[in-house]
Design a protein around this nucleic acid. Sequence first.
DNA 1: GGTAGACCTGGACGC
DNA 2: GCGTCCAGGTCTACC
Length: 321
Amino acid sequence: MPTRLTISTPADYILRRDACSYGYFLLHPNVWNPQCQTFTRILCLESGPATLVISQPLPRGRGTPAGAPLRVVASRVLSRVEQHEARLLITRMLRLDETAEEIADFHRVDPRFSASGRGRLMRSPTLFEDVIKTVTSCNVTWPSTITMNRRICEVVGSDGAFPTARQLARARPATLRARCRVGYRDARIIELARLFASGSVDSHWFEDPATPDDALLAALLDLPGIGPYAAANIMQLLGRYHRLPLDSEALRHARNVLNYSGTDAQVMKMLETHYAPSGRHAFRSYWFELWNFYEGLRGPAYTWDQATTGASFTASKLKHE
DNA sequence: GGTAGACCTGGACGC
DNA sequence: GCGTCCAGGTCTACC
């Protein structure tokens, strides 16, 4: 009998809204099923990979699932240790550790999102996966990021899971380049994996809220393949939302939606000024403004089909929509 | 400190 | 079907 788990959520938590809140929900090995409203994810646990299907059944007599517990059905029996592992990984991935009060604080700063309740951003079960996903999203169009992550899971991971740092550290650059289509990122990805696998990168230090922002930023910029944009993006994935990862998509948003004009440097300064009132929530304000734009074009993210709608976010298309 | 060019892939486009 | 151009962030060399 496969293991079933129940995981409690913050009082405002809605799976379909809060899981489908950041582009990584469309990247392998994450699978959102718009028909069933379930989130499927293969996790590497103590004795091997297991597929977990996560849902949030609507409680009897209630019109909203907000705060209802998550139901998790595993593809096999999980040991006690594995159940604990799965809970920790799911909690990180779905940001169940962010309280309703923290989200309410964001809404006080930026009331535009209080009606929708937006505030949480989905991320990966581990910092390592977040870092690799960020590297595969740099200097490349979104469909290529999708391809890289799918192939990394298929070629290097066990049974389609995202590879562990140890697995990726053992991969050959030529394999990553030829079979995973990561291009020149091959050596950087393997070097990152080696740093995580050897313990040179201490995930606990990066995840620790007590670690100063400046030290965190400097440490991220020291990593191979991590520049200013990637470092700022990883910081928001670590829950530090005051810094904006400004890329070409941010510039497109500024020019097309906010009607800003000027050089790239000028427009970036205008964006910083625009979101400055949100202070430590600046990234949330930026991101959900952008996400609203996407949902205005494609409908609610929880209705997106991964292979079609989810792959349609290219700059050239968005520019003309 | 600022800037130019290389890095690699995939899609768009013209022929 | 083929060749060319372009988008995308990081890194290095150079001024």
